[in-house]
Design a binder for these strands. Structure first.
Length: 579
RNA sequence: GGACCUGUGGUGCAGCUCGGAGUGCACGCCGCCCUGUCAAGGCGGAGGUCGCGGGUUCAAAUCCCGUCAGGUCCGCCA
């Protein structure tokens, strides 16, 4: 038997490790009182809990131990009497008898029950997070997270990557997400920022000859929080030299599939891919949930010459919802409202009934149009078809959102369907000055086949840029970086960034590239999100030990808080209080 | 910056539509009883500024306005 890492000076093993093999042995265990059941003056059953599980200890009823007392129990492992074996408990075959109990720490009754019988309000859980993480679910989730981290590290090491830690105190870069700012004491009036990602640091490691870098990196962004977004989050960040996009996808796939195997017990098949354009066209989003079909249909040609004003638009898209003919008027109104919030002018619906197509708009449509709608996605009687007519991107976005609302299973359900999204556009629009707006950071490599379009038709330029998506969640993204000075200059020019501006903002990176930059590419994906999906959790707070609320507060510590006059003086900072 | 939802003994709920005494349920807590329980059981008990402030009303947990906290989403997240 290997060394027993469970034993300490105070205990011989964990509660959950005691089993029938130990019958007859006298041993000590430590833990929290999960439950006490009294039977008269001299008999009480105590369920003792530690991180491994529960163990029943039989004590004299006079011993006063209560919920969540921390105790050390020494007793003899005994087979339970006939008829008292508890199948529901892993240690239900045995118990500890002839016990002496040492109270290591008395406890007040906890503010909420620590068993899993009720869902406690998250506000209360976060205030007493130290009690919440004593509960089975948080124990399970945080240990799952640790296992995923371990797996990712070993996958990266096995692929020849070297872990390098990059600074948390970094230089401000005015682009991208809002940064958390840290005032400098030694340079009053100047500031560090916390990195929104180690992007530039890792590219410089490539110039530094590291060849393959990875880091389980903390990233910080001062943007509004969501179910899948915290101020600080953790990424598996990686970068490699002398590689193409395909190499990076292979590295990341290997790490993710290994982690999935550790977390779920089965290794998913190879990760497929689709282009950004296909994702938008068929699923109305760049992060498609492929657990279900409901693919968007394009009816633009059918309605190209329509006389119905509501359908006069560059694009008409439709989606079929199986069984949707049952939707109440209130439900349809609610869906219409959702579409309008996303910028749609309206939402047309068509019930497929045995009498034909039922809709307020039906009487305005001609036979061809009705027939096309009735045939959307193989529509059957009892289905409903929704249509949105708008600009292409807008129509896709609205129906994509509706598709998820009406079709997506809960996070905890369905298979894990990974997909690579490739060939993102280089630019996402044109600004007021007529310059294209970068969809990614400005070091992203354009597709060489499209470079000739940079000046003439920038919106058609594809980037060497790729996302990994799992069940509708964007896990992460990466790109091939520009390592060619001429192409970089061309991209800066396209973006309207002058030489001086490029120099002041990215000078140290551009400078480094002058000294021999290998072709390189990289990726980063969010471990919080990956683990949340593995754990079947709808929000990442459930896989983070001490998360913030949506307003950025820590209900346990009270952060953010004011600081002392002395601290302010040191930093030469004078708060302007809000009035 | 915006939309919507939630806030009732320690915890989870019901009560709110249609105003009438802090009413109810479950768990927990405290005390007593109980020698094989494990969601133990029996008896008894304590525990409340109905988030906060204002308004309407003879009367507000309930209706109205504001505000705070929490959540979901839009914007935002190159």
């Amino acid at each position: 038997m290997s060394k027993n890492y469970e034993a300490t000076s105070m205990r011989d093993m964990l509660c959950g490790s005691v089993n029938a093999e130990h019958i007859g042995q006298k041993l000590s265990v430590c833990g929290w009182v999960a439950k006490r059941r009294e039977h008269g003056e001299h008999l009480a059953f105590v369920d003792l809990r530690d991180r491994s599980g529960l163990l029943q200890v039989v004590v004299d009823g006079k011993v006063d131990v209560r919920s969540e007392y921390v105790i050390r129990v020494t007793g003899t492992v005994t087979k339970r009497p006939e008829g008292t074996i508890n199948d529901k408990l892993a240690t239900g075959e045995i118990e500890l008898t002839d016990c002496t109990v040492e109270i290591l720490s008395a406890a007040e009754p906890p503010p909420f029950q620590l068993d899993e019988r009720v869902d406690i309000d998250e506000q209360v859980r976060l205030k007493y997070r130290y009690l919440d993480i004593r509960r089975e679910k948080m124990q399970r989730n945080l240990r799952l997270r640790a296992a995923v981290n371990t797996s990712l590290r070993s996958s990266m090491e096995a692929q020849g990557f070297c872990e390098v830690e990059t600074p948390l105190l970094w230089a401000p870069t005015p682009e991208g997400a809002r940064e958390f700012v840290v005032p400098s004491r030694l340079h009053p009036g100047d500031f560090y920022v916390l990195p929104q990602s180690p992007q530039i640091a890792k590219q410089l490691l490539m110039v530094g000859g590291f060849d393959r870098y990875y880091q389980i990196a903390r990233c910080l962004r001062d943007e509004d929080l969501r179910a899948d977004r915290q101020f600080e989050f953790v990424q598996l960040d990686l970068e490699a030299s002398f590689v193409t996009q395909e190499d990076i996808l292979a590295f990341v796939s290997e790490a993710v599939l290994n982690a999935a195997e550790v977390a779920t017990g089965t290794r998913p098949g190879p990760i497929g891919s689709m282009t950004w354009h296909q994702a938008l066209d068929e699923y109305g989003t760049d992060k498609p949930d492929l657990r279900f079909a409901m693919v968007l249909q394009d009816l633009s040609e059918v309605f190209a010459a329509t006389e119905v004003k509501a359908f006069s638009a560059p694009t008409v898209k439709a989606i079929r919802v199986p069984g949707g003919a049952e939707f109440s008027r209130a439900k349809l109104d609610q869906l219409t409202e959702q579409a309008k919030e996303l910028g749609a002018k309206g939402l047309a619906w068509f019930r497929i009934t045995s009498d034909g197509v039922d809709s307020p708009l039906a009487k305005f449509l001609n036979e061809t149009e009705i027939a096309a709608i009735a045939a959307v996605d193989g529509a059957q009687v009892g289905d409903i078809v929704f249509c949105v007519a708008d600009e292409y991107a807008q129509a896709c976005k609205v129906l994509g959102s509706l598709r998820v609302t009406l079709g997506a299973p809960p996070v905890s359900e369905g298979p894990h369907h990974y997909v690579w999204i490739t060939d993102f556009p280089m630019f996402e629009g044109i600004d007021e000055d007529g310059n294209p707006i970068a969809a990614h950071h400005p070091f992203t490599m354009p597709n060489p086949d499209d470079i000739h379009l940079m000046k003439t038709d920038p919106l058609e330029v594809r980037a060497r840029c790729y996302d990994l998506v799992l069940n509708g969640w964007e896990l992460g993204s990466g790109s091939v970086r520009i390592s060619d000075a001429a192409i970089q200059a061309q991209v800066f020019t396209s973006l309207g960034i002058s030489d001086e501006e490029a120099e002041s903002r990215f000078g140290f990176l551009m400078g480094a590239f002058k000294y021999g930059a290998p072709p390189h590419a990289g990726f980063a994906f969010g471990i919080d999100r990956l683990v949340a999906i593995f754990a079947g959790e709808e929000n990442i707070r459930e896989v983070i030990a001490y998360p913030k609320t949506q307003s950025g507060s820590d209900l346990m510590t009270g952060a953010p808080k004011n600081i002392t006059e002395r601290q302010l003086r040191d930093l030469r900072i004078k708060p302007v209080l809000k009035g």
